[in-house]
Design a protein around this nucleic acid. Structure first.
Lengths: 107, 107
DNA sequence: TTTATAAATAGCCAGCGAGTTATCGATTAC
DNA sequence: GTAATCGATAACTCGCTGGCTATTTATAAA
């Protein structure tokens, strides 16, 4: 329901969660146990973080026996990139308008 | 002390704050009163949000008489873009490694 | 000089969110 | 079949954050 970048910003605002995501980007596929080993927080905490990342579309999960593997969904960063570009676009067009104005004042 | 993208992610995670920043990008220079008029929250709330955005380096303020004008500091989005590229880079290099592996297996 | 306005600060409160431990369901190993 | 392991869920605590009103400080207007 919220705009795509809404959940993404919130998901990535937490350092622990961002670290998990970074790790998945760096090293690929990981089980919850493997992620927990390096997260510095308890396993349930990691599970919750993974849930949030999943809701934001930033990770996928894959069940394999009693293990669950998570992996980064890199395409999910697109809304964030789009948003950034949009901000830059606003900036640019304001700059263009200023240029226009100066040009008009010039003649 | 925190990494630059840390404060930026946190600052932009809040919808009200992000809306203020978007408005500054879109429409440029704004007084606190002007921002408050559209923010849907009280003036002190807006001031606090502007403080957070300023700490994150996302906005500048300029005093003019009893008015304070804020404007977006677009360059401040760079760490965010860098971070995104870095994630994409990790992804790419893992892909490259996989390619290498397949190549080695091939011969 | 008094009054009014802009914006920041102080102080408070409620809700959320990240953490914990305990538990449960599912799967594998013995 | 029983025990052990993986991961998710439940239930709780606690600190932080976003909101408010009231106040303060600074500047402008009367």
């Amino acid at each position: 329901m919220p705009q795509p970048h809404e959940r993404i910003f919130k998901a990535l605002a937490d350092p622990t969660r961002r670290a998990i995501f970074e790790r998945l980007c760096r090293d690929g596929d990981q089980t919850v146990a493997a992620l927990t080993a390096r997260a510095g927080v308890s396993q349930p905490a990691v599970s919750k973080h993974l849930g949030v990342l999943k809701q934001a579309g930033l990770v996928r999960d894959r069940h394999e026996g009693r293990n669950t593997h998570y992996s980064a969904e890199l395409g999910a960063l697109a809304p964030l990139i789009d948003w950034t570009n949009q901000m830059a676009g606003f900036w640019q067009s304001r700059f263009d308008n200023l240029e226009d104005l100066l040009k008009r004042m010039d003649r």
